Amino acid sequence: MSRFMDAVRAEWLKVFTTRSWWVLGLVMVLYIGFTAALMALLTSSLFGPSGDMPLEGTGLTTMVYSLGTAMGYVFPVLIGALSVTAEYRHNTITPTFVSVGQRGPVLTAKVAVQGTLGLLYGIAALLSAVLASVFFFMGQGMSTGLAEGGTWMMFLRSVIAMGLWAVVGVGLGALIRSQAGAIVVVLVFTQFIEPLARMAGGFNDTISQVTKFLPGSASDAFVGSSIYSEITVGGAGQTLLWWQGGLVMAGYGVVVVVAAWLTRWRADVS
């Protein structure tokens, strides 16, 4: 336990003595805030009580509030991956292993610290999405959903989802080791491969049976609202129940971390 706590303290020190955590966090907040404001402006104008196609309910507002996880989950994945790959890039992983004495506590500490940082990213992304959009909804006389328990449960699950994404990032970083390689893999998969696959699943039920288990789809199901789900489920697309999505997301985190431990983490450092 003492080795684990030493590793945790060292990991937090590494986080706060580098710029990557707050630079990525700032970019995420600005990106999510701008996108949420734009989406709120469009949806409130079109679907608000005075719009051309008025709709009732809070589905539109929660869809905008969930942009933090639907579009911002790449940021905790990257920060989790960089926490590992940066050590290999700058050759600090060997002193880290030597100072702690065992490799297990190092990986566990990275999972704990980066998972916590992912939760903080989740809170920041959620606040950015809500604060940037809620006044547009209020201005159009739409229900903001903030008085409903279901909305707050969605908020809680969205924060947890961002923590799980950071854990997945740690596992990916430990598996890939290369900083450039990890960034390319994360961006290509999250921004191109999975969105295209989910779009295809929206038109084909057989494909949808597979794509609903992809990490982004599982995360959206766990949160309970997503712009991607709204786009794809309208056709042949299907989604998991919220608790199923949570289990799948947790499973991804466990699988990648355990795979990293069994393969690359215990290998010699070159």
Rank of each mutant, 00 (worst) to 15 (best):
S2P: 09
F4H: 10
D6T: 10
E11N: 12
K14M: 14
V15T: 06
V15C: 09
T17S: 15
T17Q: 15
R19C: 00
W22D: 12
L24P: 01
L26E: 08
V27K: 06
M28V: 04
V29A: 15
V29I: 14
Y31M: 14
T43Y: 12
S45M: 07
S45D: 14
M53Q: 11
T58Y: 02
G59Y: 00
G59V: 00
L60M: 13
T61E: 06
Y65D: 00
S66C: 06
T69G: 12
T69D: 08
A70I: 08
M71T: 04
Y73K: 11
Y73S: 09
T85Q: 10
A86G: 12
Y88C: 02
Y88M: 04
T92A: 14
I93A: 11
T94E: 15
F97N: 07
V98D: 07
V98L: 15
G101S: 05
V106G: 05
V111T: 09
V113P: 01
Q114R: 09
G115S: 05
L117Y: 05
L117E: 12
G118M: 02
G118H: 02
G122P: 06
S128I: 11
S128V: 05
V130P: 03
S133I: 01
V134K: 05
F135T: 06
F135E: 05
F137V: 05
G141E: 11
M142S: 06
T144S: 11
G145H: 02
L146R: 12
L146P: 06
S158K: 08
S158V: 00
A161D: 13
L164E: 08
L164A: 11
W165M: 13
G171L: 02
G171C: 01
G171W: 03
A174W: 00
Q179E: 11
G181D: 03
A182D: 10
V185Y: 01
Q191W: 10
F192S: 11
I193C: 12
E194G: 02
L196R: 01
R198L: 09
S208Q: 05
S208R: 10
K212F: 02
K212L: 07
F213Q: 10
F213T: 07
S217M: 02
V223W: 11
V223I: 10
I227Y: 06
Y228F: 07
Y228G: 03
Y228A: 05
S229H: 15
I231Y: 14
V233Y: 04
G245Q: 00
L247C: 07
V248F: 12
V248A: 03
Y252R: 07
V255E: 04
V255Q: 01
V258W: 09
A260N: 02
A260W: 06
W261G: 04
W261F: 15
T263H: 09
R266Q: 14
